[in-house]
């Protein structure tokens, strides 16, 4: 195992809380972009959410977007620079609440960019409110008795939702809660970028990720929450792959 810092990441400490999954996802993206040799061709988008400052860590061009709008911004950037590599990095509030329309329509148009969707089942940046992906029964600052199936509905399953769209090339749900999961996540993310290089169309990788601070759990307990609770509702796996006929 090598521990060299990828060139696509700056040598800096991040602002993420201990046990947060964003740092792991950044690291995987950095490694993938290095391995594909596309750092100088890449344009990333920053979401509104805990990852808004990702341009402080990634060593390539980045545009910071309004909350939920990265798919619209990425659509224009990729259409104008079809030979560049464009990706969105979005949280569950960004992608599955305020930006649902932008996400679905970019996916359905089959825009040839890549989305890394970090699902931590909560609004991290604003201090732990309910997300569209919050589990039934999960306590948040706006569901203090736990998410109520009747009042707030069930969690939104993005991969399942998008799998019905003909425009989508590839959908996979992974996690970064164990080393084994992270290896799988890396494989999926690499494929999602490779698809773009090959012009296959819209690829999205949903990453189940930890938020110990807002879940009010220790980092170790947070890993347990992903493995024991989240994976039950959000089943990891490939939801669509146009390569597999």
């Amino acid at each position: 195992m090598k521990f060299k810092k990828p060139e696509s990441l700056y040598d800096r400490n991040t602002h993420y809380c201990p046990g947060c999954g964003h740092g792991i996802v950044h690291r995987i993206i950095g490694e993938v972009i290095d391995e594909l040799g596309i750092r100088e061709e890449t344009i990333g988008t920053a979401p509104v959410g805990c990852a808004v400052l990702l341009y402080d860590y990634f060593n390539f061009d980045v545009i910071e977007c309004a909350h939920g709008r990265p798919p619209a911004v990425a659509t224009a950037m990729k259409r104008i620079h079809p030979d560049k590599i464009v990706f969105t990095y979005q949280g569950d509030g960004d992608l599955a609440a305020i930006g649902t329309a932008e996400m679905i329509h970019a996916a359905n148009r089959g825009e040839n960019f890549t989305t890394i969707f970090v699902n931590n089942a909560i609004y991290g940046m604003t201090g732990g409110q309910m997300a569209p992906t919050t589990l039934v029964g999960q306590r948040t600052t706006t569901t203090q008795k736990g998410r109520d199936l009747i009042k707030q509905g069930p969690p939104l399953k993005v991969c399942e939702l998008l799998s019905s769209l003909d425009g989508v090339a590839y959908l996979e749900r992974v996690a970064v809660s164990t080393a084994k999961d992270s290896m799988k996540a890396k494989k999926a993310i690499k494929k999602a970028f490779q698809n773009q290089i090959d012009g296959k169309g819209y690829s999205l990788v949903e990453v189940l990720s930890m938020c110990p601070t807002d879940w009010k759990l220790s980092p170790a307990q947070a890993v347990g929450f992903v493995n024991d609770e989240m994976k039950k509702v959000f089943k990891p796996g490939v939801y669509k792959d146009t390569d597999v006929k």
């Binding site: 100088e40 344009i43 341009y55 061009d61 980045v62 545009i63 620079h81």
Partner: peptide, 15 residues
């Protein structure tokens, strides 16, 4: 923003 080939990365941001 068109990829940072031959230059430092650029950032477009408002925060």
């Amino acid at each position: 923003l068109d990829g940072c080939k031959g230059r430092e990365p650029r950032i477009v941001k408002t925060l």
